[in-house]
Amino acid sequence: MNQELPERLIDESMRRVDGRKPDELRPIKIEVGVLSNADGSAYIEQGRNKILAAVYGPKEVHPRHLSLPDRALLRCRYHMAPFSVEERKSPAPSRREIELSKVIREALEPAIFLERYPRTAIDIFIEILQADGGTRCAGITVASLALADAGIPMRDLVVACAAGKVDGTIVLDLNDVEDKLGEADLPVAVMPSLNAVTLLQMDGLLTLEEFEQAINLAIDGCKRIYKLQKEALKAKYLAIKEEVEE
């Protein structure tokens, strides 16, 4: 996909490698309830990212000894398909995937009323079908939709978006090239209605002012994606309503 690396990531007219403005998101398409065998599911396309999420539960915990007496056990698997990147990726979970699974689980945990369902498990599967940078953020965004689709009580939807610095400019929603060649990447996950941050990571270097600018930009991006999330969640039911009530 990105064979020849661009010399500059931002041109004279402040356009990025894919033609976006610094504060512009990639085009996003979301669909909810795409898998009939899962209790809840969702699919997202964010730029060239294609991600599928499925949720099962709450259900009995297997193996039994893992169950928690006071709350539900949340298990999360972030996995990249072998064909999701240019060079075939081994399907075995890598160090990076294991870490991201944990980070995503911890970003979603505060949104779920886990204490209401002791001794049960909720399983989340996030499958990256095609990756183009920012998959952890898009993964969190779809996973929270899959949870809501499964009917699991939540405080709020969790939505994530990254900001970063490329060629000295603070930009929103980095793609793969910008992430690899840029100076900094700052993924943020929030629960917008509650004004709470559930994930904050940083890779690279930013000054204090730049950091502040970047985090505000990322949160602004999250709020824009949040609107799309809500629309997608309602779309399934509004379509039926229109169909029968003509």
Partner: peptide, 8 residues
């Protein structure tokens, strides 16, 4: 009216 988790 249709509402989603987190709606005030």
């Amino acid at each position: 009216e249709l509402v989603t988790p987190g709606d005030l």
